[in-house]
Amino acid sequence: MITTNSLTKNFKSYKKEPGLRGSIKNIFKREYITKPAVEGFDLNIKKGEIVALLGPNGAGKTTLMKMFTGIIVPSSGQVQVMGHEPYKRNKEFRKKIALVMGQKSQLWWDIPAMDSLLLLQKYYEIPKDDFDQKIKKMAALLNVEELLHIHVRKLSLGERMKMELMASLIHSPDVIFLDEPTIGLDLIAQESIRSFIREYHKNNDTTIIITSHYMADVQALCERIVLIIDGKKGYDGTLKSFENILGSEKVVTFVYDTKQDPTDAIWQGLDAKWDNNHQQVDLRLPEKKLREITSQILIQSPVIDFHTEKLPIERVMKVLMENPKILHK
């Protein structure tokens, strides 16, 4: 479905010293810098997969998305999406893809969303009955029936994002590229967008490529993760094995309403991390011993609350971003 081979994109920019002096100097002499945003990238994505492209800011995720959609031209290497070379921007190719940009609106700002949708209906040559049916169904699922005739600029960010999703799915694309689709949204809107995408994928078996800084998006939607660090592929595998990169340990937190003694015998050999008041402790426990040690602590100390971490992927991402070398060990 999507294959890349040694895909590389370099961006050229120039250095500029601050202030007027720097500006004048710049007119006569410019020091150009060529920086690879994506370097020697190999990837293979099958039909129907949902893949998360993860990585810190500036890692090259969005540059990859831009190359997949044909918005920018690769500097070298090959990229093929459904047999098309995206940068050639063949019309047949454009009819099969969709892109949702969380940071940029694709809808026309000064007209109601419905007008934009009608325009897209013509561009994608969607029969009227089919179009009406899709609008009705998606608007009901996203709960935006009342908002279709309101000017886009008057919608909230969450409402607008729902409209963006509708606009990008109206032509039933084979591949959907979602670039940070939940950025800046409140928790309810995030959840609503996630469940819509999940449902859409279930019913249509669409291939979905998603970038997001919210690990909850990844946890809820993706089975496969591709981690990009400094333009290169750092990891490519399942979500489950990604969570276990740092070992199969679980973090368990115990909470007390009184100050505890960290030197007590029950904490020996457990590498306990206490908060300043000694009322909360985090333990990293091997998965096999989780049950045994947790029961002991619950019996031997006055625990008022305890929980295991909800998103282990978040911890793994944090550790890998701070120290990417772990991946090469």
């Binding site: 044909g70 454009r94 940029k104 694709q106 994608y124």
Partner: peptide, 12 residues
């Protein structure tokens, strides 16, 4: 400002 990206994707 990079706003032509959407137009590059539409089949028009």
């Amino acid at each position: 400002l990079g706003r032509i990206s959407s137009y590059l994707i539409y089949p028009f």
